[in-house]
Write a protein that binds this DNA or RNA. Sequence first.
RNA 1: GACCCCGUAGCUCAACUGGAUAGAGCAACAGCCUUCUAAGCUGUAGGUUGCGCGUUCGAUUCGCGCCGGGGUCACCA
Length: 552
Amino acid sequence: MKKYLSRKVTAALEALHYEGRVKLTFEKPRVESHGDLTTNVAMLLAKTAGKNPRLLAQEIIGALELEPDLVSGVEIAGPGFINFKFTDRFFNRQIGEILSRGREFGRLDIGGGKKTQVEFVSANPTGPLSVGHGRQAAIGDTIATLLQWTGHDVTREYYYNNAGRQMRMLAESTYARYRQLFDPAYPFPEDGYQGEYIKEIAERVKSEQGEALCALEKEQALELCKSLAEGALFESIKNVLERMGVRFDVFYNEDSLYTSGKIKEVVDEFRKLGLAYDNEGAVWLKTTELGQEKDRVIIKSTGEPTYRLPDIAYHREKFRRGFELIVDIFGADHIATIPDVLAGVKALGYDPENVKVVIHQFVTLLREGEQVKMSKRAANFVTLDELIDWVGPDAVRFFFLMRSISSHLEFDIDLAKEQSEKNPVYYVQYAHARIASILRFAVTEGVTESADASGLQGVDFGLLKEASEIALVKLLLEFPATVESACMGFEPQRLTTYLHDVATSFHKFYHDHRVVIPERELSRARVGLCLASKLVLANGCMVLGITAPESM
RNA sequence: GACCCCGUAGCUCAACUGGAUAGAGCAACAGCCUUCUAAGCUGUAGGUUGCGCGUUCGAUUCGCGCCGGGGUCACCA
């Protein structure tokens, strides 16, 4: 549609010798009465041409050569918009295209097979995943799928660290809880992890090992506790991710950066570049020379690196592994680390433009109208597992994706739990199930042989002329563009909003017109429209990672 | 104090990257099932887009300054 008009208007501009002065764009007007597409070229040209935009528009229209069976109207409106209206035929003939592309409808080629990595969740195995991780999992997984749908070669990656201070504390907490099973007075470390899950892990250690750890040297016992706790936590993390339908291709261990010498390599290289120096026993990175406000420590005086160093090394490895587009999904609390990492990567000779950092804001849970305060240390925090238990994986994913990434997300548990029939996700799924039901009925009544496109050869979709039919078709045809804009802007909420609109448009069509009717040809055309709607809903749900049920 | 995100209907949020008359869902009110799923549809009401300047044909969107909420500012990750 845009392509067609773009060709025609360009030709007109050339005929008038206005070509190349401004960028020609078409947009879908918000208001339906303004037509199907609009362009503002006349207004943009007005300045350089020194003419009234409405007069210019008139000139352009005069030079246009359009086919009347495709375009039914062209008019000048407002300050100088040129509005185009297409014929119903132009739209409804494209239903056939949706049907023939089927489960592929909405897929695009624009990525050109670009090797792309999406890193997300990346929580260290020190506790169960929180609802915040859940939002990240939903966002990351959906962005990854969107990238696949737009023709990128995508790797989903989880980066974790099973060494360091946090893991040490995990081991000590587990060990203390274990010892408390035998001696309730055994002291618990001051900064230990308070959560119940530590006690559960300790119970597991006891059932597997009995009293054996009490007899061991403490260091040895801690080592054992660490690996048992890590194993248990990773198992639960993978389990809950699986419940959400998230599967990673690669789990990348930070430790491998040390054992393979990559960390040292980076430090040496910074020294060689004159970007690293020693001061007060620590190694500093001259981030000031890289456009930052102050220099940063990369190796502490204790000899341990700060998080920046492995992060930089890791990002370099991403480039070295051949990723052309690197997408990092981070929570708002990690925002401060990004400039250092990007500056470091740039200093090492890689283009930070190829790293897209997507930062999402936090999730607030509401229960009985009260905000649920959450802290990993304190015992009161809602895990992702619990949230899924309450509202189900589809609602969890959909809710997490409904809001724009940069907005705080408020998740009302009671609403999602008690009034689930009012969830938008059910609204969308219901539309899909309803269509499935109609198609089954159409088959029973002999309108078509099967509930797919195979029985619809030679159907004349031109028979669809009703307002709610055409409105639905137009909306369905916007699916690929919606996938594209959701992907390019890293804004999955565009898709949830869109699917809700499709469901609304379908419900309205359903309400206005019966599908299975005596007029056989019209009935078959409507079956085609139902099928096309079902495909768009199903494909959209697939991208969002939620189910599209055949019945509810 | 510095930097980042947010501020849109009573509530939760959209708004296709600067377009025309700012839209949905809850909540409120009034209607619609003898018929393919009423988990649905139709209508009413609800707004100075936090406030003020500026940029231009045109601003919820871009810039500056305030106000309010959240976040980050370690030799923690």
